[in-house]
Design a binder for these strands. Structure first.
Length: 429
RNA sequence: CGGGCUGUAGUAUACCGGUAGUACAAGCGCUUUGGGAGCGUUUAGACUGGGUUCGAUUCCCAGCAGCCCGACCA
């Protein structure tokens, strides 16, 4: 993509009404646009990140036999009444509305009840189980207080998977598989090393649940981490009984602030009982289906990556979810340099490298470098009179520490000059 | 939902009960070109409603909007 054609622009100024790092950097970079408090649009660069995150999640969900669907955002009152969750006392974040004929509707807060209804049409026998279904779909939650940029919003996409098993044993087997799938997702998106399986309360749905918490100083939650075992306990259930039952000891637990990037629940038969999702066993008895639900918010995951990995100059995207692999900069407007840069761009495209080409004219080198740092692509590749004289292109990784000042310009960080062929080998080994 | 703070060009800010100033952005011209460059020039602004006042962007009230702390969080 040529940056001269990209409709978004970077901003030098920090918006004063955003304090959180993720919102500041994502807005300055033009990844997202704030529509209102807790409601953000995703612009071209941001959407590319979201799509990559979704694809990683999709691959991991498919690997554990998930089947993708899309459910509706409009939900009927009757769907939620059997579990008593239409009432404002039970669920206080509903956005409710009405049809012209006064029928009450809700905007999707979550989908346990609707998916249970759907599955009633298809599950009758033990032969139909187990089944696993997921979607990426917009949730609406009328949060009293939206905050922390894209971390806690009123409208957001969530990947929610629902499992339907014959009994608790079959459920537990899947539940353990889902933990590994989730851990793969966080590893692949670059935050695996700071994300912990965390024992937590079950909220409305069950007594306990598991969260995946990523350690960042700006996190909303407090967790106690046992680094050697790689697990943690949420403050909300942090007591002697829980610590003992998990085989942990207080001496090894370290307090941290963290962001909940994923959450898995055992639902049991709460929904299948209430909505009468039953199946017949081999002996002809009717049993309620044993359920679980498994959520990840791609937007929050994106915000968490920004919070956890950025430096004082901008975002540092992991290769796996970067909007582009390479940020190609051309310095100077001389024809010879621009022709050479165009050639490099074409070669990268031909080799299937995702490249953002800063071909903007009359933009100073400093501004291009600052933008490259802010936008955070993994590789910065520079074409300039100097790189051409040195026989190639200058390559610098975004996550490499600054090299010592080499006298080539104020605050200059020199990359390594290599040929385009070597660059391609580096990117596509 | 309790508490606190804030609304001035696109963004960030300043002053003031009496002509709203600056920087960045944007447009134009020239210069510059390896870390957000310079000179000149142009465009552009007081959240809404009520009150006090000769006069309100400024003071008061209400509404709306935003941020922060806490509580909440499927």
């Amino acid at each position: 993509m040529r940056q001269s054609k990209l409709f978004t622009k970077t901003k030098k100024e920090v918006p004063t009404d955003e304090v959180s790092k993720n919102a500041e950097l994502l807005i300055r970079g033009g990844f997202i646009y704030k529509e209102m408090a807790g409601v953000y649009s995703y612009l071209p660069l941001g959407l590319r990140v979201i799509k990559k995150i979704e694809n990683i999640i999709r691959e991991e969900m498919n690997a554990i036999d998930g089947q993708e669907i899309t459910m509706t955002a409009l939900q009927e009152r009757e769907t939620w009444e059997p579990t008593n969750q239409w009432s404002d006392e039970q669920v206080d974040v509903w956005f409710k509305t009405k049809l012209k004929n006064e029928t009450e509707l809700g905007l999707a807060v979550t989908h346990e009840a609707p998916i249970t209804k759907i599955m009633k049409s298809f599950i009758q026998s033990y032969r139909d189980l187990p089944k696993f279904v997921y979607q990426f779909q917009t949730k609406f939650r009328n949060e009293i207080r939206a905050k922390s940029g894209i971390m806690r919003t009123r409208e957001f996409v969530m990947k929610d998977l629902y499992s339907f098993c014959r009994d608790e044993k079959e459920h537990n087997e899947f539940y353990e598989k889902s933990k590994i799938a989730y851990q793969n997702i966080f590893k692949r998106t670059g935050i695996g090393h700071i994300t912990y399986l965390t024992f937590a309360s079950g909220g409305m749905f069950s007594k306990f649940s598991h969260e995946f918490q990523t350690i960042t100083s700006t996190g909303e939650d407090t967790i106690y981490v046992d680094g050697s075992k790689g697990i943690a306990v949420n403050k909300e259930v942090y007591n002697d009984e829980v610590i003992e039952s998990l085989g942990l000891s207080k001496e090894n637990l370290v307090e941290n602030r963290a962001v909940e990037v994923g959450n898995i629940f055992t639902l049991g038969t709460r929904f299948s009982d209430a909505l009468e999702l039953k199946y017949q066993t081999e002996t002809g008895e009717f049993k309620s289906v044993f359920m679980g639900s498994y959520g990840i918010g791609p937007g929050r995951l994106m915000g968490t990556v920004v919070e956890a990995l950025a430096d004082d100059k901008g975002i540092i995207w992991p290769l796996s979810i970067a909007p582009f692999t390479v940020h190609l900069l051309v310095l100077g407007d001389e024809d010879s340099v621009r022709i050479e840069a165009d050639k490099v761009y074409e070669k990268l495209l031909k080799a299937d490298v995702e490249v953002l080409f800063d071909d903007r004219k009359e933009i100073s080198a400093g501004e291009k470098f600052a933008d490259a740092d802010l936008l955070g692509m993994p590789y910065r590749v520079v074409v300039s009179t100097r790189s051409i004289k040195d026989g190639g292109v200058e390559v610098k990784k975004r996550n490499e520490p600054a090299r010592p000042h080499d006298g080539l310009g104020a605050g200059g960080e020199k990359g390594k000059v290599i040929s385009v062929e070597e660059l391609l080998k580096l990117l596509k080994p």
